[in-house]
Simulated assay, not measured.
Amino acid sequence: MLAEVDEAPERRRLMNAAVSDRAVEAWLSMAELPEAKELVAMLREWADAKDAKDAEDAD
């Protein structure tokens, strides 16, 4: 994560996504973790989806 993401707030957001229920289910179903860039992209997608849902729930 440190090598791929420079900004601390973004790393924190992605680490939160990495320990979400959705991520844990995904990790358990994978035979091996994706390469770093693909993993960061996956975490960004999950974090963005959570952010969108949180914004929708706030309305």
Rank of each mutant, 00 (worst) to 15 (best):
R44E: 10
L28M: 11
K37E: 15
S29M: 05
D21S: 10
A58F: 01
L33I: 03
S29L: 11
E45W: 05
E38M: 09
E45F: 11
M15V: 07
A49F: 05
W27G: 01
M15N: 07
V19T: 10
D6H: 14
M30A: 11
V40A: 05
D6Y: 07
D48L: 10
E38W: 04
V24Q: 12
A8I: 12
A31L: 12
L2Q: 14
A52N: 08
D59P: 00
D6K: 14
L14M: 05
N16R: 13
R12D: 09
V40I: 14
V19W: 03
A41I: 01
A36V: 01
M15C: 08
M15S: 09
D21W: 00
D6F: 09
D6C: 08
R11N: 06
V5K: 01
S20E: 04
A26D: 13
P34K: 04
W46M: 15
E10W: 01
A55G: 02
D57P: 00
K37M: 04
L28R: 11
V24Y: 03
A18C: 06
M1C: 07
A8K: 08
R12A: 08
L14E: 02
V24G: 00
E25F: 04
D57Q: 12
A41N: 13
E7P: 00
E38V: 08
R44A: 05
A47D: 05
A18D: 10
E4L: 13
L14K: 05
A47E: 05
P9R: 02
P34N: 06
A3H: 12
E32R: 13
D21H: 10
L14C: 06
E45A: 13
A23Q: 06
E35R: 14
E25Y: 07
A52R: 15
D48P: 03
E10Q: 10
E38N: 13
E38Y: 10
V5T: 04
A26Y: 08
A8E: 15
A52Y: 04
M30D: 10
K50N: 04
D59V: 09
R22I: 03
E38R: 11
W27R: 13
D51C: 00
V24L: 14
A55M: 05
L39Y: 13
V19I: 11
E38K: 12
E10G: 02
P34F: 06
L28F: 02
P9M: 07
E38S: 14
E25A: 12
D54N: 11
D6I: 10
A41H: 04
V19D: 08
R44H: 03
M1Q: 09
A8C: 01
A8P: 10
V5P: 01
S29I: 02
D51N: 03
A31Y: 09
D48Q: 13
V5W: 01
A23M: 13
A26V: 11
L33T: 13
A49D: 14
K50P: 00
D51K: 09
E32P: 00
M1H: 10
E32H: 12
R12F: 05
K50Y: 09
A31S: 14
R12C: 01
M30E: 15
L28A: 08
A3R: 14
E4F: 02
L14W: 02
K50D: 15
A31D: 14
A55P: 01
R13L: 12
R44N: 03
E45H: 11
L43D: 08
E56V: 00
E35K: 12
D51E: 12
A36M: 06
R13P: 03
V19N: 05
E7S: 15
R13Y: 08
A55H: 10
A55I: 07
